[in-house]
Simulated scan of single mutants.
Amino acid sequence: MIEQQTRPAAPAPTPSAPAALAARLSCATAGGVAFGVLTLWLQGRLADSWNVLANSGAVWTVVAVALAAVFGTSRTTGAVAGLLSLLGEVAGYYWCAAPWHGVAVALDEQVLWTAAAVLIGPVAGLVGHGLARGTGAQRVRAALCVAGLLAGEGWYDLRMAQNLVAARVEVALAALVAVAAVLISRASAATRAVAVLLGCAVAAAVLLAYSGPWLVL
Results as ranks from 00 to 15, higher is better:
T135C: 11
R141D: 08
W95C: 08
A104F: 15
A104I: 10
V105P: 13
A137F: 06
A97V: 02
V123W: 14
W100D: 12
T114W: 06
G134V: 10
C96P: 03
A132M: 11
A115G: 01
V140R: 07
V118A: 04
V111D: 01
W95I: 10
E109P: 00
V105H: 11
R139L: 07
V118P: 01
Y94F: 15
L126W: 02
W113N: 13
G130Q: 08
G134T: 01
H101K: 14
R139Y: 09
A124E: 01
A132Y: 06
A106E: 13
R139K: 12
L119F: 04
G121Y: 04
A104V: 13
H129G: 03
A137P: 04
C96G: 10
T114C: 09
D108L: 10
A97L: 07
Y94V: 07
L107P: 06
T135K: 09
A104T: 12
L131C: 05
A143S: 09
H129F: 11
A143R: 00
L131T: 08
V105M: 14
G102E: 08
A116H: 00
D108I: 04
A142M: 06
P99K: 09
A97N: 02
A104C: 06
W100E: 12
G134L: 09
L126K: 02
Q138T: 14
Y94M: 09
A115H: 00
E109G: 09
Y94S: 11
G125T: 05
L112R: 10
A98V: 15
T114Q: 01
T135E: 12
Q138A: 15
W113G: 11
P122S: 06
P99S: 10
A106G: 13
G128I: 07
L126R: 02
Q110W: 07
W95Y: 11
A97Q: 08
A124D: 00
A117L: 01
V111Y: 02
L112D: 03
A142W: 08
G136E: 15
V123C: 05
G130A: 14
C96K: 10
E109Y: 06
A104W: 12
V127P: 04
A124G: 00
W113D: 05
A98Q: 13
L119N: 04
G130N: 11
R141H: 13
G134M: 06
A132D: 03
A142G: 07
A116D: 00
V105L: 14
T114P: 04
A142N: 05
G102R: 11
A117H: 03
W113A: 08
P99F: 10
G125I: 04
V118M: 03
Q110S: 06
Q110N: 06
